[in-house]
Design a protein around this nucleic acid. Structure first.
Lengths: 197, 197
DNA sequence: GTCTATAGTCTGATAGAC
DNA sequence: GTCTATCAGACTATAGAC
C-alpha cells in the first residue's frame, strides 16, 4: 500500500532530481545534491528509488506524455496554417512552463541519448512520421508551401526549445530579461510568413 | 622553448578533451577517458595542462574566434537578405564542420554557462548588440520586415545549431541519415520567405 | 521510514623513479 | 617527458540501529 506521505516524498524527490539533473546532466548530478534539494537524507531517497539511474529513468518516462502531447493534438482535418502555428504555440508554452524538462531532454540528446528508452524513441519516431505525412498531404493539396515536412518539424522544435535550453545565453545578452519576452509575437510572425501559400 | 612533440601532444590532448567534454559535459568527462582517447597516460596529460578545468577553459577560449567569426563578417553596406542568409549559411557550416564545438558550447550554456569567461560572454553580447543595431537600421530603411532583431539572431542560432546539438535525435527519426541532409535548402527557403519585404 | 555509519569504487591530482 | 604507484576526497549504495 502507498500512503500519502510516500506519494508526497516520491514527488518531492522527483522534483529535486529534475532540478539537479536538468542543470548538471546525469553524471554531473549527485545524490547529495538531490537529497539536499528534496530536504531528505541520501539513504532516504534511495529508499524510494533503487538507484540514481532509476530516478533519471522515472523522469524521462514521465516526460514522454507531456512532451509529445502537442504533436498528438494536430488535427489533419483542420486548417494547415492554424494547426502548425497552434502546435508551435503549445511547444513554446512547454518551454515557458517546463524549462527544466526541456533541459533534461536536451542534456540527454546532447550526450547521444544513451538513456532514452526504446519506447520513447520509437514512439517519438512514429509520431513524427505520422505528422510529416499529414504535412505532406497538405503540401500535395496546395494548402502549404513545398517545404520538407521533417525539417519543418525540426525547425519548430529548434525555435521553441531554444528559449528554454539556451535561456542562460539569452538572459546574458538581454541583460537578465525573461528569455521569452517577445518570443510569441516573433515566432507567430515567422511562421505566418513561412507557411503562406 | 616549445618543441614540435609538445605542440603535437597538446593538440592531441585538446582534440581528445573536445571529444569527451562535448559528449559528456564537464563533470561527466573524466581524465581517464580523455587520456585514453589521446593515447597518453593520465599523469602525462596533466603535465601539459594543470587541471581538468584548464583543458576545458583552453577549449572554450579557442572556440570564441571560430564561433563569432560569421557574425563579424556581416557587412552593414551589403544587401540585407543576402547578408543574413549568408550569415545563416556560415553558421550552418559550423554545425557541419564543428559539431563537437557546438555541443561543447551547448553543454556549457545548458548548465547555466558557469565556466563561460567574462571575455567570451562580454564579447558575445556587444557583438550581438552591434549586429542587432545593423538589422534595426535595415528595418527602419524598409529593407527588412519589422522583425525583432534579437529574436532574428536567436532564431538563426536555434535553427542552425539544432542540427549539431540534436543530431542524435534527428538521426534517430531519419533512420541514421546525416542530420544535415536537406537542411541547406530548407533553411534558405525559410529565410527567403521570412525576410522578403 | 528515517537515520548514522561505512563499505567499495571512482576521480583529480601528485610523488618520484627513469 | 613519461611512466608506475598512490594519495585524498567524493561518489553510489548498503548495513543496521531505532
Amino acid at each position: 500500500m502507498t500512503t500519502r506521505i510516500q506519494m508526497r516524498n516520491r514527488a518531492r524527490i522527483l522534483d529535486a532530481a529534475l532540478e539537479v539533473f536538468s542543470q548538471q546532466g546525469f553524471r554531473g548530478a549527485t545524490l547529495d545534491q538531490i537529497a539536499a534539494v528534496a530536504g531528505l537524507s541520501k539513504p532516504n531517497i534511495l529508499y524510494y528509488f533503487d538507484s540514481k539511474e532509476a530516478m533519471h529513468r522515472a523522469l524521462l518516462d514521465a516526460l514522454l506524455d507531456v512532451w509529445l502531447a502537442p504533436l498528438r493534438a494536430l488535427n489533419p482535418q483542420g486548417n494547415p496554417q492554424q494547426e502548425i502555428i497552434g502546435y508551435m504555440r503549445r511547444k513554446l508554452e512547454l518551454s515557458r512552463d517546463y524549462p527544466r524538462e526541456s533541459r533534461l531532454f536536451a542534456n540527454e540528446v546532447l550526450q547521444g541519448a544513451p538513456r532514452l528508452s526504446d519506447e520513447i524513441s520509437g514512439g517519438l519516431k512514429s509520431l513524427v512520421d505520422d505528422s510529416a505525412a499529414i504535412f505532406q498531404r497538405w503540401i500535395d493539396a496546395g494548402r502549404l508551401p513545398p517545404l520538407d515536412p521533417y525539417h519543418l518539424i525540426f525547425s519548430i522544435w529548434a525555435l521553441t526549445q531554444h528559449y528554454a535550453d539556451f535561456g542562460a545565453q539569452i538572459r546574458l545578452i538581454r541583460d537578465g530579461a525573461d528569455p521569452l519576452d517577445g518570443a510569441d509575437a516573433y515566432l507567430e510572425a515567422l511562421f505566418t510568413r513561412l507557411l503562406a501559400v
